[in-house]
């Protein structure tokens, strides 16, 4: 019953469908092994979601995909002219996320969608808070460019 939601989580963190399947596979193995450790504090869905997110982070930590960026936070705050509407589909949003580099994608997921703070993200990923902030800023800017491109394309076609 949670498999579809967890697959959605894996797709958000991975760069490809194949990686997402690997994360889902390893995540469910860990859930099976650790099921007795679930202490009924908090929701079960939240517990398995955390395991799935940690599995994704382990995978990309091993691949050393979390190289920090040297850019400063302020560099990427640019103005954008496009109004953000709800016409953009979920699949298109997912595609934009998948196109991000791993370090930007993971920090954006953890901060913007899961709701972790920069302090918590820095502890989870073993990076400092400045790195977390700069990665988030870079991710937002890239996504904003992609959304802008999407709407320009829609206007041209439409």
């Amino acid at each position: 019953m949670f498999s579809a939601k967890m697959f959605g989580v894996c797709l958000r963190y991975s760069g490809s469908r194949e990686d997402a399947q690997d994360i889902l596979h390893e995540g469910f193995l860990k859930i099976y092994e650790k099921i007795e450790q679930f202490e009924s504090r908090g929701s079960f869905e939240g517990w398995i979601r955390r395991i799935m997110v940690n599995t994704a982070l382990e995978k990309f930590r091993n691949q050393n995909k979390l190289v920090r960026t040297q850019e400063s936070v302020e560099e990427f705050e640019r103005s954008g002219d496009t109004d953000l509407t709800e016409n953009i589909t979920v699949k298109e949003l997912l595609g934009m996320i998948e196109e991000l580099s791993p370090q930007y994608r993971i920090v954006f997921n953890l901060y913007a969608i899961e709701g972790y703070s920069h302090k918590e993200i820095s502890e989870m990923l073993g990076i400092n808070e400045g790195t977390s902030k700069s990665n988030l800023s870079r991710a937002r800017t890239i996504l904003q460019e992609k959304v802008n491109e999407f709407y320009k394309h829609v206007e041209r076609v439409g």
Binding site: S3, A4, G8, R12, Q21, I88, T89, L93, I97, I113
Partner: peptide, 13 residues
């Protein structure tokens, strides 16, 4: 935008 779109995204594996 991304949170609203993807938080409950649940495709069949």
């Amino acid at each position: 935008l991304f949170r609203n779109g993807l938080k409950d995204y649940a495709p069949a594996p």
